[in-house]
């Protein structure tokens, strides 16, 4: 049994109905799971002795703009034991978007989730320190959302005052 089949089989065995989709595009295995199971899945993948996905490389989100489930959070995790990078996805349908944090499973997700909150406005529930990563405090918008214009919103950032 190769690595891919092992991972898919193990996850399907444990999270039968919660797995929404398993895709394999360009040799990248991606598993879409129901929103409420993401922390359980993360814990399972990290702690299972056969899998050991102990490193979280990246957390980000996709804004689909027109879909009913507008946001998708994307997690890239890595297992040194299997030498395999796996992608997890979770679709969010509520407004404002919220999802449980995985920063208690993988410590490194702390900053990645802060960045995702800053850029997409997805609230990570129970996150220990959900501040903006790049944009200044008090900025009202989330720049990577599709409805944010590329040129920015005039007046949204305070500029240095120039005395006449």
């Amino acid at each position: 049994m190769n690595t891919k089949e092992l991972i898919v089989e193990k996850i399907k065995e444990k999270f039968g109905e919660s797995v929404e989709e398993v895709s394999d595009f360009r040799d990248d295995l991606c598993i879409t799971i129901k929103k409420d199971q993401i922390v359980n899945l993360g814990k399972y993948l990290k702690e299972d002795p056969d899998l050991q996905f102990i490193m979280c490389k990246d957390v980000t989100a996709i804004d689909w703009a027109t879909r009913k489930k507008r946001f998708t959070t994307v997690y890239h995790i890595y297992s040194f034991k299997l030498n395999y990078a796996l992608r997890l996805k979770s679709n969010i349908d509520d407004n404002p978007p919220t999802i449980e944090t995985v920063s208690f499973v993988w410590q490194s997700a702390n900053w990645y989730e802060r960045e995702t909150w800053d850029m997409y406005g997805i609230k990570f529930i129970n996150h220990p320190d959900l501040r903006r990563m790049y944009m200044p405090e008090g900025f009202e918008y989330h720049p990577l959302r599709k409805d944010f214009p590329v040129l920015g919103i005039p007046g949204s950032l305070p500029l240095p005052f120039k005395a006449e």
């Binding site: 595009f25 360009r26 990248d28 490389k57 990246d58 980000t60 996709i62 890239h76 990078a85």
Partner: peptide
């Protein structure tokens, strides 16, 4: 249509691009 992630070893570490 699809999404891929590819990372390379950079002087600073692992640089990855996730493109949708």
């Amino acid at each position: 249509i699809g999404d891929t992630y590819l990372s390379v070893e950079n002087p600073k570490g692992e640089l990855g691009f996730y493109i949708v």
